[in-house]
């Protein structure tokens, strides 16, 4: 029967629910099309990379970013909001020679989407969510990131309304590069903490 969702293939359940939600006047085809076309999706790792590159190039900006992430992001024209436009506190955490930071959300999948875009599938996986807080060194090794034994690891579990951005250590061979070139070195995984930069 049509009321028994469990027996429909998942794509058909989605279509049925869309039809019901539209029929109830809660959204429209046009609105869903706009969302799917990315009209509301302003987030991209390029945004986070611009913040990191500025922090690498400008120590004053780096200090402001670490002190108040929202204000520093606003300097470059970026807001701090989740998928539905709801605000979060942005906290940037800096990697150094002695310390490495990595971000996880063990309860669900909280993520700074306005600065990093939609999260990769592995970020939402049970394996990443369960193991990163317990054995981060082993998880990072699965990403190919082998840290020296003496490096201190800080795992940030985004369990409330703060979203984290890792500011990787500036690559040693990047001296003299302009900010745009620096930004092109920064990866999404570097800003999650599962890559060196």
């Amino acid at each position: 029967m049509s009321g028994d969702h469990g027996e429909l293939p998942v794509a058909a359940r989605v279509r049925q629910l869309e039809d019901q939600v539209i029929a109830a006047g809660l959204t429209t085809d046009a609105e869903l099309d706009e969302i799917l076309a990315g009209r509301y999706r302003t987030g991209s790792p390029a945004n986070g990379a611009r913040l990191v590159a500025r922090a690498w190039a400008d120590a004053g900006f780096r200090d402001r970013l670490l002190a108040d992430g929202n204000a520093a992001a606003a300097e470059l024209g970026f807001g701090a909001s989740g998928g539905g436009g709801y605000g979060y506190r942005l906290k940037a955490v800096q990697n150094t020679a002695q310390r490495h930071n990595v971000i996880v959300c063990t309860l669900c999948s909280c993520y700074p989407t306005s600065l990093l875009g939609p999260s990769p599938s592995w970020y939402k996986s049970f394996a990443y969510r369960s193991r990163t807080v317990r054995e981060p060194r082993a998880v990072l090794a699965e990403f190919g990131l082998e840290l020296p034994a003496e490096t201190e690891i800080l795992v940030w579990d985004s369990s409330a309304e703060t979203r984290y951005l890792v500011v990787p250590a500036r690559p040693a061979d990047s001296a003299g590069l302009a900010e745009d070139a620096l930004a092109s070195l920064v990866t999404r995984d570097g800003m999650i903490g599962t890559a060196a930069f």
Partner: peptide
């Protein structure tokens, strides 16, 4: 979920945010 054992390796290559249109 945090700390629970037994979920195996993280599939670091499992990239796309959406794996199907639905």
């Amino acid at each position: 979920m945090g700390g629970q054992a037994g979920f195996g390796p993280v599939l670091a290559g499992d990239e796309p945010p959406f794996q199907a249109d639905w």
